[in-house]
């Protein structure tokens, strides 16, 4: 029984990391339809930002979260403004453009910071472990879980309860009609992309103490994040949450029975089969195109 609960908790922990990484992508891909292959690099930038803030400014991880969000969001804003918005309505070109941007960011980091692995310290306040349902769990993982849920809540509120969110939803439904009502679609898109990028940066900063930080760490995350978003269904934030935790539990469980690699392979296969039979994702209500 203990082992079972332990597995559930491990799965939740994996799921919360998946959710952190996928949330930004869900916004960008789900609402703007941009297949952002630079997403992993935004995660990587966030992780490096955490390292830089810690090493050069002596800031702890928690204190640097807000600046990291702003820095990476600014990056995203620049990329949207000067690359992607010029490629409007050409989804294939945006795939290539974002992949190119991603490679440039990778190489820029490799040239400036170097390609050796970097390590970010756990916040001292969260480096012990605590009791959850009778088993001992690292406090940091609990913290990640709480943060991921909180970020989801904030994003949901932003999308559904603020003027910017309403404008964005209007643009998604019909861009030209929204524009004729005086909504500045360009500005809303740039803000949305920046927000998604900022979330990715936060994700990178938050996972950096658990994983080593390297210039090509993003590639794995972008694949995972896409699987989460597609499984959950495009344009469904709640679906993203559900699928992140489903995938987390699945990989945690199979990894316990077999090993990590097999778990990943089986989960990917399951997603492939699922997309074949339900391409709109698990949790999407039919929406008008």
């Amino acid at each position: 029984m203990d082992q079972f609960i332990e597995q559930i908790v491990t799965g939740l922990s994996i799921g919360s990391i998946l959710l952190l990484v996928a949330l930004g992508l869900s916004i960008i891909y789900g609402s703007m339809g941009i297949i952002n292959l630079a997403h992993g690099e935004f995660v990587m930038l966030g992780a490096y930002a955490a390292w830089v803030f810690h090493t050069y400014l002596g800031l702890g991880l928690l204190a640097s979260l807000v600046p990291i969000f702003l820095v990476v969001a600014a990056f995203g804003w620049i990329i949207e403004r000067y690359v992607l918005s010029l490629l409007n309505n050409r989804p294939l070109d945006t795939i290539l453009a974002t992949w190119g941007v991603g490679i440039m960011l990778q190489q820029a980091v490799r040239l400036s910071v170097g390609s050796e692995l970097r390590y970010v310290q756990l916040p001292p306040a969260l480096s012990d472990s605590m009791d959850v349902f009778g088993i001992s769990v690292s406090s940091y993982r609990v913290f990640l879980f709480v943060v991921s849920i909180a970020l989801f809540g904030a994003t949901w509120l932003l999308m559904n309860r603020t003027p910017v969110g309403m404008k964005l939803r209007a643009i998604i439904q019909d861009r030209s009609v929204a524009a004729s009502f005086g909504i500045n679609a360009k500005r809303v898109y740039a803000l949305t992309f920046a927000y998604g990028a900022g979330l990715a940066g936060l994700a990178g900063a938050l996972v950096s103490p658990l994983k080593s930080v390297s210039p090509d760490m993003g590639t794995g995350y972008v694949v995972d994040a896409f699987m989460v978003v597609v499984l959950g269904g495009v344009q469904s934030l709640a679906g993203t949450v559900a699928s992140a935790f489903i995938l987390g539990e699945l990989s945690g469980g199979i990894a316990f029975l077999q090993n990590d690699t097999v778990a990943k392979a089986i989960v990917l296969l399951a997603i492939v089969v699922l997309i074949r039979f339900r391409p709109e994702g698990l949790f999407t209500a039919r929406v008008r195109a």
Partner: peptide, 19 residues
Amino acid sequence: YVSIITLATMVVINLVIID
């Protein structure tokens, strides 16, 4: 969806080879 399926299948084969 084609691109996601092809990408995922490739990663699966890659993982199996590594494993």
